[in-house]
Design a protein around this nucleic acid. Sequence first.
DNA 1: AATAGTCGCAACCGCCGCAGC
DNA 2: TGCTGCGGCGGTTGCGACTAT
Length: 300
Amino acid sequence: MAEPQRSRSRACSPGAPVELDDDHGQPGGAAQEEEQLELRRGPWTVDEDLTLVNYIADHGDGRWNSLARAAGLKRTGKSCRLRWLNYLRPDVKRGNFTADEQLLILDLHTRWGNRWSKIAQHLPGRTDNEIKNYWRTRVQKHAKQLNCDANSKRFKDAMRYLWMPHLVDADDHRRRVLHAQQQHAADVAAAAHGLSAGMVVTSSSDSFATTAESYDDVGGLYANLHAGEMAVVGGGGCWAEHEANHQGLWPAAADQSAAVAQAAGGGQFQDPELSGWVQGFSEGMITENFWALEDIWKIQ
DNA sequence: AATAGTCGCAACCGCCGCAGC
DNA sequence: TGCTGCGGCGGTTGCGACTAT
């Protein structure tokens, strides 16, 4: 079971009763008020988590207010629902966002804006809350570094032509490193068994896609995120539409990356879709106030 | 070592839409 | 038709952990 990473509390002390934690603040009777007086809020305790998990295991979720009462939890139904969906659900994925996921978030946010729940539907195991937090802490921080709004065209251009291509490259690089490591391990194993490395390579490296698939952790959504090589795998079902829709939104990321790299090196960089700001990279207008390519890379 | 500033994120808040009565 | 309860969503808060000075 998931353990809270750290205890947190809000205005009230953890587990402290509150006067009112009603969804709509409707007036209630004396009994209802008495019940509300006992409601807890703040960080969930291990006991509460166990109670909720066990109850849902036995009875299923839904009907959260009655669930909270039936389970004996002195929490609002809303609080129980949130705790379950964002933390206790067995399929909830924890830890840092992968390059795949970051890429997808950036792309989907470009299209849908702050529709976190909608975006979360395309990231199996991730919650809208987590994505929202990621956006607010990481992405908006970068927007701030650029002295622009996260919703501005300028920032979207930065994402589209700088960050996304680097994520693609980082992802590709990561997979190749993994593949190399696996091959090395196989070689070592083969050597230990007196086999030639070539024999093992033949059996282990005939399909890079296999490595990529096994590494893929976006619920089988993508097999290979490298621009132009995207393919639908598993039951994701959304990538065909995704790719069709992002024509122009995310054009040949690897090519753009190369173009940006060329531009950073002083070469000409012409693309009618680029705003003047990104075009400026080809004119050497990068300052310390802007992301350097290396910085973007480090961000990951 | 102490302090201040920043970050990450769980949890809460307020609003909205929908269903049932 | 209006009321009520509920689920869901996006926005916000606040605190412990971490980092810089």
